[in-house]
Amino acid sequence: MDGFSSWFAYVGDHWSDVLTGTLEHARIVAIVVVTATVFSVILGILVERHPAARAASLSIAGIFLTIPSLAMFALFIPLVGIGNPPAEIALFLYAILPILRNTVTGLDSVSPAVVESAKGMGMGNTQQLLQIRLPLAWPIIMAGIRISTLITVGIAAIAVLVGGDGLGGFIQGGLTRLGLPNSYESVWVGTIFTVALGLVLDILLSLAQRLTTSRGLRI
């Protein structure tokens, strides 16, 4: 019980820092997810019907995810300096695979008969893509975006190590003075608000998914 009350006291004392940290964290996630979505969906559309390019891009995006995050974040410091940019680039690379994979899978899942009938009625390739294939793949693409968002929220806590913002600051601050007063509280603030941010974003995206998915596709 003592732990809880001291945690709440800590949050109360540092409320404005917590809020700032959460908003900074959310901002990084938003930038990363939006750019990764645009990039991955376009890439997915381009490679979907070309087996070699598709296999290559999926493998490369998969390799990004296996690079340890500590190293990945540091790798971009020589290129873009310290601060948020190296963190955002690293997170962007992590966020690609789920969206790319789901874009390709989503486009694959569109029934060939539907595409055939669209083509047979005189829809050009762009019309087929924008009016038929993307709307039908959309729920699956959205699922990929949600996974990427959750991954990004969690890993973004490491941004602090390369001089970035976000809730990672509370965790790192607590770890460096572990055992001292309020150190555990600080770690828990970073952790819990990160998790909470992830949950909130996921709920918002699931609402967005519902609103942007045709009633004809809902189960």
Binding site: S111, A113, V114, V115, E116, S117, A118, K119, G120, M121, G122, M123, G124, I132, P135, L136, S214, G216, L217
Partner: peptide
Amino acid sequence: DKLRRRIGYVIQQIGLFPHQTIAQNIAT
């Protein structure tokens, strides 16, 4: 594409657009 808009085309699997209403499908 212009040629196909002049010709009705029906296939065995029908291929209705599942995300569009019946009226929207017919209005393609």
